[in-house]
Amino acid sequence: MPPPLLFGKKGSKRARKILSGDSIFKKLTIIFALFILVLFLLIFYELYSRSQLSINKFGLGFLTGVEWDPVHQVFGALPFIYGTVTSSIIALIIAVPISLGIAIYLSELAPRRFRSPLSFMVELLAAVPSVVYGLWGLFVMVPWIRDYLQPFLESTLGFLPLFQGPKFGIGMLAGGIILAIMIIPTISAVSREVMLAVPDTQREAAFALGATRWETIRFAVLKYARTGIFGAILLGLGRALGETMAVIMVIGNRPQISLSLFEPAYTMSGVIASEYIEATQEIYLSALIEIGLLLFIITLIMNVFARLLVWRMMKMFRGAKE
């Protein structure tokens, strides 16, 4: 009699029994893994079907409409799209240079024993709950913006329409700044990881040619890691677009499109969170869910694209190192 095969199709009764226990367990784990994929389809399906009413009634005009008037059942999402996009752009303008500085310092310049405690501190920035940032933003940052930053910006850059307007503290600028604080850890952590993955041979080659540290970073590290850094920035953007609580508390929540960064604004996530409870008519709720659907699709595309960039890059480096 041949010995029972552990992983074959044939075998004694006992081997078959072993196999069945194994295959049940394997199938069980597959089901749970599958759940992660199914979840995406489910979210998309639910949001899509629940927003049918609004999609059918407003069509593409929903994206370009500037009027948001629940009483007369007129819904246009442009002010919210504008608020979300503009506050995220402000956040990127502030956060990208700072995050790259942090990533460069922590991966290339800092003395070795400081690297890990410092990067831990930057990562802790991501651990602070968004509602705590909102609280701090509302009572500490907003008064500071009102009393110092806005007068300063107005007196130096006040000729630009961007920096004219009421000085409440609360508004687009405050929203952008709080978002910047919240995405710095994302962008800097991922960029740092990508930079650390750049093979040392690159750096050594640059040093051997007589490059200074900065030249090495610029030509050997940054150039090599740029795809991954771009991915990191997109990840940060994705986070900024979807962030809700901190922004809701400092941006003023007024659906308007204004050139001034001092004016209050409203974001997509903000309008969903603060109005869903009043949305008793079906069309109102449907319009809010459509905004949610838009937000889901936008952040999904951002994240897929960003992860692909980072993944491909890390794979390439692993190949280069071996």
């Binding site: 992660i36 994929l37 489910l42 809700t244 969903i272 969170a273 949610g292 952040t299 994240n303 992860r307």
Partner: peptide, 20 residues
């Protein structure tokens, strides 16, 4: 694919989870 989508899932805004 699962690994990738798990990473993407962590980037889906929390408000979307709430709405869902």
């Amino acid at each position: 694919l699962v690994r990738f989508m798990a990473d993407v899932l962590s980037g889906v805004p929390s408000i979307i989870m709430g709405l869902f």
